[in-house]
Design a protein around this nucleic acid. Structure first.
Length: 417
DNA sequence: TCTGGGGTCCTAGGACCC
DNA sequence: TCTGGGGTCCTAGGACCC
């Protein structure tokens, strides 16, 4: 058996923990740049606010219903996620942190009759220790645990257990096929075209048909719906194979200087992420593009991928490549809206190959990066930075409704008085 | 005025090997 | 007249997830 623990309306719930007046009110959280709706409290969902809706299109609705609107506060959400996962880890070591707000638990070592109590205990403990409401779904496969969670969210207890077939069959019969984990828009369309509307009908399709249209991934999914477990819980997170840092800018940027500043900062973020997972990258891609939502302006979009002389993880090497790439793709006469840096060809830092001519990463860079990381960890991000990272930040995000970083910043602690 | 960011896996096709 | 069989690696594109 598997459990899926899923935080309810996670970002909106994080905002509520430190602002109890928001209980019972409609709350939404916006994407970067205050662009789209990315989280909604139940009250907001009832107002018909859709996921991914651009905020400016529903400005009137938000005002009319006095919806509490927040810019996304990832410092807060990441920390709260960590607290939820820590809490779960104290209840069981068999945990897979699947996303910022979800975790699977491998329940094989649990006696079946203890599972209802355990599921309730998970929910109550996380709620009490972190203030975040969670739903728990329990079933014989990960995919079915997702289904159980779907029903847990709708139930008063916040828990749903699907042990065996009469129950599972009823659950699948009432579930639209498009709600199944792994069925996205395209697959849903294809299913509907073939008269498959419910998860139960999906489960009854022949292996051959599924294999032909949805590939091996789809076949696994259908087997999982039948109760045959194909997806194990991953207790260890493997290192990432590609790492990207990109942002839309708060306003359009035409000049080279602010673009260089932005790209240098993105390169440093990528380097930090590489070091955190003890990896080095062989390839670096830089991309820039103008604003496709303004078709009347001249459009330009380009990217370039460069091979590093030696796989690296230190700031200087990545900045150098990123700026070199930017130099090659930059054109004057366009208003840029977004840029990013992507590193790939990732290898463990312990296994970096020198090149044939003995050129290695210069000694000292490794120590320098460690020292910079340690200082910035203590003193705050970018306290020590390369000059090119700058202080102007004309490209910075728009975040007009940002809540305090209650849990990660001394100056922003919650005060009561 | 105003439209996010970061990932995974699979597949098909081409270039190449013996 | 006649032109095999069995592989690997890489890449781009497309699906999916949160």
């Amino acid at each position: 058996m598997f459990a899926l623990v899923d935080c309810n309306n996670f970002y909106a719930s994080c905002e509520r923990v430190f602002n109890p007046k928001l209980q019972g009110r409609a709350v939404v959280v916006l994407s970067n740049n205050d662009g789209c709706i990315v989280a909604r409290s139940n009250e907001a969902k009832q107002l018909g606010i859709r996921m991914g809706e651009p905020a400016f299109k529903i400005k009137d609705l938000l005002q009319r219903h006095k919806v509490a609107v927040f810019s996304s506060n990832y410092a807060l959400y990441a920390d709260m996620s960590g607290r939820v996962m820590q809490t779960l880890r104290q209840l069981t070591p068999f945990l897979e942190v699947y996303s910022i707000d979800e975790a699977f638990i491998d329940l094989r070592r649990f006696a079946p009759h203890t599972l209802p109590d355990f599921a309730q205990r998970v929910r109550q403990t996380v709620g009490q220790w972190t203030g975040i409401p969670v739903s728990v779904g329990v079933a014989p496969t990960k995919t079915l645990a997702k289904v159980a969670n779907f029903y847990a969210k709708k139930s008063a207890e916040g828990v749903c257990l699907l042990f065996c077939d009469p129950d599972i069959e009823i659950a699948l019969q009432q579930l639209p096929a498009g709600e199944v984990w792994g069925i996205g828009r395209q697959y849903e369309k294809l299913l509907l075209k073939n008269g498959v509307e419910t998860a139960l009908q999906l489960r009854q399709l022949s292996d051959d048909w599924v294999r032909q249209h949805f590939g091996i991934v789809g076949l696994r999914l259908v087997h999982e719906l039948r109760g045959i477990s194909c997806l194990p819980v991953q207790l260890f997170t493997p290192p990432k194979k590609g790492i990207c840092t990109s942002r839309s800018f708060g306003r359009g940027v035409s000049d080279m200087a602010p673009l260089q500043e932005a790209v240098a900062n993105f390169a440093v973020r990528c380097a930090e992420k590489l070091r955190r997972q003890q990896s080095c990258a062989n390839l670096l891609t830089v991309f820039i593009h103008s604003n496709p939502f303004k078709p009347k302006l001249p459009q330009y979009s380009n990217s370039i991928t460069l091979q590093l002389p030696v796989a690296a993880q230190h700031n200087a090497a990545l900045i150098e490549q990123a700026l070199g790439g930017l130099q090659k793709i930059y054109r004057t006469g366009f208003v840029y809206k977004k840029a990013g840096v992507y590193v790939s060809g990732i290898v463990p830092q312990s296994g970096v190959q020198g090149n044939l001519f003995g050129q290695q990463n210069p000694q000292g860079h490794e120590q320098l990066s460690k020292t910079i990381d340690a200082l910035n960890q203590r003193m705050g991000r970018d306290t020590v930075r390369y000059a090119i990272q700058g202080y102007e930040r004309v490209w910075k995000l728009r975040q007009e409704q940002l809540s305090p970083r209650y849990t990660t910043c001394w100056n922003e602690l919650l005060t009561i008085g």
